Simulated scan of single mutants.
Amino acid sequence: MSLLPSADRRYLAGRGLAYREVTDGAQQGVILTGFRLPSAKYQVDAASILILLPSGYPDVAPDMFYALPWLQLVPDQRYPKAADQPVQFEGQRWQRWSRHNTSWRPGVDGLSTMLKRVEQALEEAA
């Protein structure tokens, strides 16, 4: 059973992104595996990115995103601002990136919008 609307699945396939649709208890989400990170910004080149899907998605906005492994900025090996709290999902401790969404457009936005926000947060992290 797919959690994602067909437009989201087409978008992910069109970008060539590997993903899993997951349920953990009452929470549902999508995990992007091997997600490429900005070059030389973090201690790794790729990570898994979790986006939890709120009840009512896609009319309700996903709020934050989560990373595995925990990402640290190089060269000082510190966590980015507002990305130092753990969240349990599928038996793992994910790094919560507290980036709130205040401009979601129900009926218009989807994972393409959320991924632009994720990519921007990863690029601009300080």
Rank of each mutant, 00 (worst) to 15 (best):
K116W: 06
A47M: 00
R20P: 04
M1G: 14
G56A: 09
M1K: 10
D76C: 13
N101F: 10
Q28V: 09
S2I: 00
Q92S: 11
T113I: 02
L32T: 12
R78L: 04
D8C: 05
A67D: 00
E21G: 04
L4E: 08
G29P: 01
G16F: 01
L73S: 11
Y42T: 03
S55F: 01
Q77G: 06
L53Y: 09
F65M: 03
P62M: 04
R10N: 13
P69F: 04
L71K: 12
A126H: 14
T23L: 07
W104N: 12
D24R: 06
Y79G: 09
Q92G: 07
Q120W: 11
V74T: 15
P106G: 06
V44K: 08
T33S: 02
T23C: 12
A7H: 13
K81R: 15
I49Q: 11
L122H: 07
T23D: 00
G14Y: 10
P75A: 01
F35V: 06
Q92R: 15
P69C: 12
A125Y: 09
A67P: 02
Y19S: 02
P58S: 00
Q27G: 08
A83P: 06
Q85W: 07
R99T: 06
I51H: 04
R105M: 13
A125D: 10
G56H: 04
Q43D: 14
W104H: 05
W70S: 08
L122G: 10
G56F: 06
K81H: 14
L73C: 07
W97Q: 01
Q72E: 11
S39P: 12
P38V: 07
A40Q: 07
Q95K: 02
D8E: 03
Q120I: 13
P38E: 06
A18Q: 15
L73Q: 09
G16W: 00
R9S: 12
D8T: 02
R105A: 15
D45A: 14
T113K: 15
W94N: 03
L4T: 05
S103E: 13
G25L: 04
Y57S: 00
L68G: 03
T23G: 07
A46R: 13
V60L: 05
E124L: 09
P86W: 13
W97D: 12
R99H: 05
V30C: 03
V74L: 15
Y11C: 05
T102D: 15
Y66K: 01
G16T: 01
Y57A: 08
G14E: 09
A26Q: 12
G14Q: 07
S39M: 13
L122M: 05
L32G: 07
R99F: 01
P38W: 11
A47G: 05
L68M: 06
K41S: 01
A61Q: 08
V22P: 12
R117K: 12
I49E: 09
